[in-house]
Structure formats: C-alpha cells, structure tokens
Simulated assay, not measured.
Amino acid sequence: MNTITLHIPGISCHHCIHTINTELADMEGVKSVEASLDSKLVTVTFEPPASEDRIRDLLVEINYPAEA
C-alpha cells in the first residue's frame, strides 16, 4: 500500500473537495482519499493498478492539478 500527499492550489471550496474525493475514490486501486480545504492537501492511499502518475493525470483531467 502506498500513500502520497499532494498540494493542490486550486482547492477553494467544499465542492472542490467533493469532486476530488469522488473522482479519486472511483479509480481502481485507490483505498482512501482525504482532502483539506484549509491546507489544500490531498492524501491518497492506493495500490496497483493506481499509481502516483495516474492519480496526478486524473487530477489534471478534472482541472485540479497538483503542484510538482
């Protein structure tokens, strides 16, 4: 099991959090998603076939890119 924490500067409201949580939770292999409006951080716990690259790609696709 892997865990990553990503900074997503585009998080500005609870709708952002809901969208990120819903989209990432639907990805095969993602076990948990915790997003914070205050810190703009998203912590994702996952296993294959999910990967950090696939998670980052999905965030870009839904217009919430993580900082490099």
Rank of each mutant, 00 (worst) to 15 (best):
K31E: 10
P48Y: 00
I8F: 11
K40V: 02
G10Y: 13
S39M: 11
H15T: 14
A50H: 09
G29D: 00
P49V: 07
V30G: 03
K40G: 03
M27K: 02
C13T: 10
P49Q: 08
L37M: 10
T45P: 09
H18C: 03
H15C: 09
I20C: 13
V44W: 00
P49N: 03
G10T: 09
T43Y: 12
K40E: 05
P48K: 00
I11K: 13
I20K: 07
G10K: 14
V44N: 01
M27R: 06
M27I: 06
I8W: 14
K31F: 02
E23S: 15
S39K: 15
V33D: 04
C16F: 05
L41E: 12
S39E: 14
G29L: 00
K31H: 09
T22C: 00
D26Q: 11
I17M: 05
T19S: 11
F46E: 07
I11F: 10
E23I: 07
S32T: 13
E47H: 02
G10L: 15
L24A: 03
P49F: 04
K40W: 06
E23K: 12
E28N: 03
F46K: 04
V33Y: 07
D26V: 00
A35P: 07
L24Q: 05
A35T: 15
H18R: 10
G10W: 05
E28F: 00
I20E: 09
I20S: 10
P9D: 12
E47D: 08
N21A: 03
P49C: 09
V44Q: 00
V30Q: 02
E47N: 04
F46Q: 03
I20R: 06
A25L: 07
H15I: 11
E23T: 12
T43F: 12
L37K: 08
I17W: 03
S32M: 03
I11Q: 08
A25R: 06
P9G: 14
P49I: 08
M27S: 04
D38T: 05
K40S: 02
F46G: 00
T45Y: 06
A35E: 07
M27V: 09
I17C: 08
H15V: 08
A50R: 03
N21Q: 13
A50L: 10
C13F: 11
P48D: 04
N21I: 01
A25S: 15
D38S: 07
T19R: 12
D38R: 04
P49L: 09
I11L: 14
